[in-house]
Design a binder for these strands. Structure first.
Lengths: 134, 134
DNA sequence: GTGAAGTTAACGAAAAGTGTTTAAATTCTC
DNA sequence: GAGAATTTAAACACTTTTCGTTAACTTCAC
């Protein structure tokens, strides 16, 4: 029974990276090649992506796909898009405009740069009015 | 490049379970033994646990452990515990009492039954004042 | 162009994960 | 207690992941 998805090696590399070190510096410390540091970091990111997707699957087990927010959308246009779609389903969304934006920025920070959405985002709505971004 | 952590088999079982079927019913449908359905379901839950832990690691990479909320604590006592601890660190917590409780209930719903915390919960605080529950 | 940082591809060996069966044990319901 | 539902453990073939190497490649600042 292991802790998480990440190996010790992967966590080690991520910690050093968080501190701002280069792959070469890390390679020197953990005694390997920079190419290997690169692959370890890359597989760590892949594992993180998979962890995210796993939880999204779980959260959306009882949710229905609502709409897709296309890459290039203005962040501030997202709430009205979602409210409009939700109205068709007769489910009341649990979030107001502000908290919806905050929710999106917190759960998909990579997909938001300033006011621009830079990835397609699948939106799910549960019967309770909760939102998930896949 | 695979989707998530869960195999097709595991997702299949979780979907049927969500619909309220027994392991035996599922075994008949997917043509295997009920023991195997149990194993698959169990490893699915294990994978979900690991996905959660992976993301917690990521979120707490730049956070420091703040305190542990012990099992048995009243949910409504949690905010003041956390605020008291945070005061020692000179970091202002981003959440007020109500939103803190909501955050906890949403992110660790299993650990909250009504007003009772039923698992030890590790609390992390980032420099920005964000909270994570590990 | 040089050097530093990062990425990629191909390959091998070791480690870990998955689906399955069988059999025994546990929990739950009536 | 009887019977159904669920859980657990051990063992197996099989697949995937991981770490590591080597070598070539892109980017970017100077």
């Amino acid at each position: 029974m292991k802790d998480g998805l990440l190996t010790d090696r992967q966590m080690e590399v991520l910690r050093y990276r968080k501190q701002g070190m280069t792959q070469q510096q890390i390679a020197d410390i953990i005694q390997t090649s920079k190419a290997n540091v690169c692959t370890i970091e890359k597989s760590a990111m892949e594992n993180i992506r998979r962890a995210r997707e796993t939880l999204t699957f779980l959260y959306t087990l009882d949710a229905t796909p609502l709409c897709i927010v296309p890459s290039g959308t203005d962040l501030f246009d997202v709430p009205s898009m979602i409210f409009a779609e939700a109205e068709k389903t007769n489910i009341k969304v649990k979030y107001d405009t502000i908290s919806l934006i905050n929710l999106l920025r917190e759960s998909r920070s990579q997909a938001c740069s300033a006011r621009l959405i830079c990835e397609d985002i699948q939106v799910y709505l549960t019967e309770k009015g909760e939102l998930y971004f896949g």
